[in-house]
Structure formats: structure tokens, C-alpha cells
Amino acid sequence: MKPDVRVQADAFDSGVELAALEQRGAGGIASFIGIVRGDGGLEALELEHYPAMTEQALGGVAAEAARRWPLLALTVIHRHGRLVPGDRIVFVGAAAAHRGEAIAATNFVIDWLKTDAPFWKREIFGDGRSQWVEARAADDAARVKWDS
């Protein structure tokens, strides 16, 4: 099973991605979809990334998930560029024979890609302010819990 990993500026259709996973003969599909929140007057998010490294880094995370669980399919899509509240940022979908593997693999991929994929978010607010998002210690802790 080769994970389907995509890094793109364009929007993606979650329904299309889920329907594709349903065609892989699985007993269960789990998915996570990350959406831009409009908290605090946020007008846009700009996602910068390291193009030469991003796909390889996400591919490494996906391959690790495939090594840990018997997956029939795994899709990881991460957008970059300018996004506005309500836009989808990230999609993780896993297909497996049973729900446990699909849910665990999805959870694992989203935790690891928070710390292992070279993206940086800048928040742009309606009043003209903008700031880089700070990494959260909770994200490091979420990654480490999979080490045990």
C-alpha cells in the first residue's frame, strides 16, 4: 500500500476523497479534516512551507502509519498559501479492515504532521495586525505519546 500524499495550494473535496477511500475494500474509513477557524477577527491564514522537503516529510509520516497499522489506503493532503476561515487546510483519511486501525492511524498522522511537516502559519486579522503562530508544547506532547 503506497500512501497518497499531496501538497497543494488548491482546495480539495473531502467527499471525493472519502468516496475514493470507500472503493478500497475496507471495513472502515476514518478521517480528519482541518478547517481554518475565524477566532479573534482572523481574516486569513498564510501557510508557508519548504517545498523541497514538505512532500517527503509528509510521506515519511504516512509511511510510518502504514508500518504501524495494516491499512488498505491512506490519503494525506495539506494545503499551503492563503486560506480564509471555513477553508479546509488538511485532510487525513485511512481505510482498514477494522475501525480501530483506521481511527488510530488517522489520529497518529495528524499528531505527527503537526510536528514533522515543515509548514508555518501566519495569522492576518481584520484590523491589519498579523503574527506568526507559535508552536504549542501540547503538540510536541501529542507526538511523543506515540513513542511508547
Binding site: Y50, M53, A57, D116, P118, F119, W120, K121
Partner: peptide, 25 residues
């Protein structure tokens, strides 16, 4: 294009990237 700690020797490196902790997802 591979994450490396501050102690990592440069060795035969051709490209080094320096950045803040990542905030994707």
C-alpha cells in the same frame, strides 16, 4: 531536507534550512 538537531555535524551537507518550530496541521 531532513530535520536535524543543533549538534548535527554539517558533514557533506549541501543545503541547510533554518526556521522556527513548525506549525502545520
Amino acid at each position: 531536507q531532513v530535520f536535524a538537531s543543533m549538534e548535527t555535524p554539517l558533514g557533506e551537507a549541501r543545503e541547510v534550512a533554518i526556521f522556527p518550530p513548525v506549525t502545520g496541521g
